[in-house]
Design a protein around this nucleic acid. Structure first.
Lengths: 243, 243
DNA sequence: CCTGGGGCGTCCCTATAGGATCTGATCATG
DNA sequence: CATGATCAGATCCTATAGGGACGCCCCAGG
């Protein structure tokens, strides 16, 4: 936020803004990558609420970079559906909140995620299983307070669980399809309250998915994931604000 | 290509590069949009081959704009997987050509497109049916010469058919998921030769999908689409170059 | 002939300048 | 008081400049 106007960065780049070693030939990050990750984090953990304007110049000032990298980062984000652009008016955080949108999202998840679970099951190995177990442990131990922000770790673990399964399909296209949805899922979790209520049942369902995966039966894994998503949908509809 | 150095464009923009009326308040396009569509078209119709470098400055010179909008357009394209970026080396057209990649793509299509067909079936109306029929007519009447480029119209109609079905789900998330795949599908059609051989059978399958859709039975539509994609996969594997 | 070094061009990346446009407030008028 | 015009500031959009890295070609020396 407060940039303290250090004034030491114009030209010559005395310090690398991303924290990576500078001057090394390997994987020097570009400012646009840094901005992208910063914005994504703000979207995922709720600092940027739906409908809020994301000013190019303003973001550039906040992150102490020029507008050019910010523009590039926002262009990438736009394609994920997390922000929307209006031609000469700028970017806004996408407002996805109608119950129809939620139903649509669940429909899309039902098409993709059970398949992900089935494929991940066929490609499972001890290392990957350990990753999933770790995430489930994190999910169980995450604090669950009364407000949204206190669920941050819980929601993060939830998202990571699904993301891991998508990765473990070893299918870049399915991973890409999930990634396109994943951000929206997380935003629904945050602002729609999905998955917050009745977290105990949700944890049990995740455990069921993991059990099915480790059993080695792809059909069971697919069914467990489908059942989980259907339950998520039911719970959300049950205690959704009437709106 | 040849820019003829008109020199009339710096400032004041005497002509609108996109061809839209200038000065109208409605939807004035921005240069980055124009560049994006130009690059996308080049990718879809094969002018840009896999592995080819897409220079930022070079593209800017070709389209007679500054690098800034080109950079923005490429950032959007990167997120579709059609081009890849290496941190300080620039963009290249993504090379998707192994048989594993093809199998992965078909797996992803099998997850998404049958669901699209099922949902589109429940939301069908006369106007939409007419659109699909028109596309099928185009597909049948398109010339099919011996070289790739002579299949341009055929491939375009094929892509449009699937794209239409994705749109007709009225589900922005499924449409987005398909759009992420659609570009890759088209590139496989072009450079992998998928769908070229045995076009008659492919047309019959499209007809079957359309028949199932117009019958109003969602399950039949879903099955017909799944059968079509499996056939596409079989044909491609059958006559794929051994590589 | 072969090899190594320097110059040159190209390209990516970021910053900055300036024109065009939108928005919100102020103010005049019915 | 309500309504519409005007102006100022903020913002978006594009072009341009310049730094740093990489590759290529030419050429001198062995």
């Amino acid at each position: 936020m407060q940039k303290a106007s250090n004034g030491t960065r114009a030209g010559s780049r005395p310090e690398d803004p991303t924290g990576r070693k500078v001057g090394r030939t390997v994987s020097r990050q570009v400012l646009a990558d840094h901005v992208y990750e910063e914005l994504l984090a703000s979207l995922m953990d709720g600092r940027l609420e739906p409908g809020a304007a994301v000013s190019i110049d303003g973001t550039a000032r906040e992150l102490d970079v020029s507008p050019t990298p910010v523009r590039e980062a926002l262009a990438r984000l736009e394609h994920t559906g997390m922000v929307r652009r209006v031609a000469l008016k700028g970017y806004r955080v996408a407002p996805v909140f109608t119950r129809e949108d939620f139903a649509d999202l669940m429909e899309a998840r039902l098409a993709i995620e059970p398949v992900n679970a089935r494929l991940a099951c066929t490609r499972l190995n001890p290392h990957r299983l350990a990753e999933l177990e770790q995430t489930l442990t994190d999910l169980k131990s995450a604090p669950r307070g009364p407000s949204f922000v206190e669920y941050k770790d819980y929601l993060e673990a939830d998202e990571r669980f699904h993301q891991l399964i998508a990765q473990q399909t070893d299918n870049q296209f399915l991973l890409g399809a999930y990634a396109a949805l994943g951000g929206q899922v997380q935003r629904f979790r945050l602002f729609g309250g999905v998955g917050i209520t009745d977290a105990e049942n949700a944890i049990a369902e995740h455990q069921a998915v993991l059990d099915a995966l480790s059993s080695g039966d792809p059909e069971k894994a697919e069914a467990a994931m489908a059942a989980h998503i259907r339950k998520v949908r039911e719970r959300a509809i049950a205690d959704a604000p009437e709106e």
